[in-house]
């Protein structure tokens, strides 16, 4: 099952600050909802346990996430693999920054989902993913704007 999501958000912070934070795995770790046992493997890679709650069912996924193809201060890639509870996810996302204070963050993500989770169907998964991504970006925007203030 393949999913594609994209969107953009405006952040009231300098472009350089936004770029530096989004390519800082420690910062990224702090914005992941329901992440546990976060381990910073190296400056571009993190591992964590992710609790994914779908209605009353909670699954635990082992996540490995890395930052790649950075082009300061414009774009970078976030690659993630997660597996557990009979499901496997591979996510490749790219972000691009334009302007500065406000900085426009354009992003797109392609996910490949296999196993039990794929059975939920793309419409539900897209609905959930959109909700989750919205939460993640709200967290990122809040943290960045707090820092820039």
């Amino acid at each position: 099952m393949r999913l594609h999501l994209d969107g953009s958000t405006s952040i009231d912070a300098e472009k350089e600050t936004v770029f530096n934070k989004l390519t800082d795995v420690k910062f990224i770790a702090g914005t992941l909802p329901d992440a546990e046992d976060v381990n910073i493997v190296d400056p571009t890679t993190l591992e964590a346990k992710l609790k994914v709650r779908v209605a009353v069912v909670t699954s635990t996924l082992k996540l490995r996430m890395s930052i790649a193809d950075t082009e300061p201060t414009s774009r970078a890639k976030l690659l993630a693999e997660a597996s557990g509870s009979g499901s496997h996810l591979t996510i490749s996302s790219t972000f691009e920054l334009t302007g500065s204070r406000p900085t426009t963050l354009n992003w797109s993500a392609d996910a490949e989902i296999t196993g039990v989770m794929a059975g939920l169907g793309s419409s539900i998964l897209k609905g959930f993913a959109t909700k989750k991504v919205g939460e993640i970006f709200a967290g990122i925007t809040k943290a960045l704007e707090a820092e820039a203030a």
Binding site: V54, A55, V56, V57, L120, I124, G127, F128, K131
Partner: peptide, 8 residues
């Protein structure tokens, strides 16, 4: 999403 969650 809410229909799915509430159904489950």
């Amino acid at each position: 999403v809410s229909e799915f969650e509430k159904y489950v």
